[in-house]
Amino acid sequence: MAKIIVVTSGKGGVGKTTTSAAIGTGLALRGYKTVIVDFDVGLRNLDLIMGCERRVVYDFVNVINGDSNLNQTLIKDKRSDNLFILPASQTRDKDALTPEGVERVLNELKETFDYIVCDSPAGIEKGAHLAMYFADEAVVVTNPEVSSVRDSDRMLGLLASKSKHAEAGEKIKEHLLLTRYNPERVENGEMLSVSDVEDILSIPLLGVIPESQAVLKASNQGVPVIMDDKSDAGQAYADAVERLLGKDMPHRFLELQKKGLLQRLFGGR
């Protein structure tokens, strides 16, 4: 049975698309047939993060309107045979997404895929609402910062009331993914810690992604950061995917790395 996972946050710029790309790629690399769907109509960026921006011919809205079928529209990732991308439309406005249309496309995707990862737009408007409405699980991406935490709590409220499962009296499985985490600033008392955010949002922790130069490097090249398995962020995402699949993994990168004497003296990074 296919699982629909929404990656959401409320606030923009916290790492939803980076996370969707990383988790989708991670699931595909572990053998699950996965599609990542970009719900950000008008501001599509998943194609750039995945490095397939020049291969977009048709988009999500075309499929909904019947201008193209899924075979023509899905872009197969060059790195994994299990991974496909459904790009958002860049020209239409958000009203092009209809609940009936989205449900039809998702049902069709369910027939062939194990995982459907929905990359939600920021905000709480139509695109974000439809991205979460049909979801079985939600990954709430949060930065350790006041506005992001507050917006995440708002999204949790919406997940509990304005989704198909909620309307049927069931509960969506929620996961907290803390991104852009800086252990040094946490140690200095300048940044909310993992347990602070867990206390406030009180949902299970899926992973902590450290603030990392690897994320920008990866997006510059159009490669999901999880492919960079030497980087801290790549490894943290890989752990998060394992946890999503039910494995119990210890959390890494929460502590400040001890610096050597020379680094201490000269402030090297």
Binding site: E145, V146, V149, R150, D153, V186, N188, G189, E190, M191, L192, S193, D196, D199, I200, K259, R264, L265, F266, G267
Partner: peptide, 28 residues
């Protein structure tokens, strides 16, 4: 942190705890 930082005032305000307190109130 370099050698010069050791001469600066080491006391730092724990702004994170202020953030947590404010969040707990507004979220509730």
């Amino acid at each position: 942190m370099s050698i010069f930082d050791y001469f600066r005032d080491r006391k730092k305000p724990a702004t994170a705890s202020i953030a947590k307190e404010r969040l707990q109130i507004i979220v509730a």
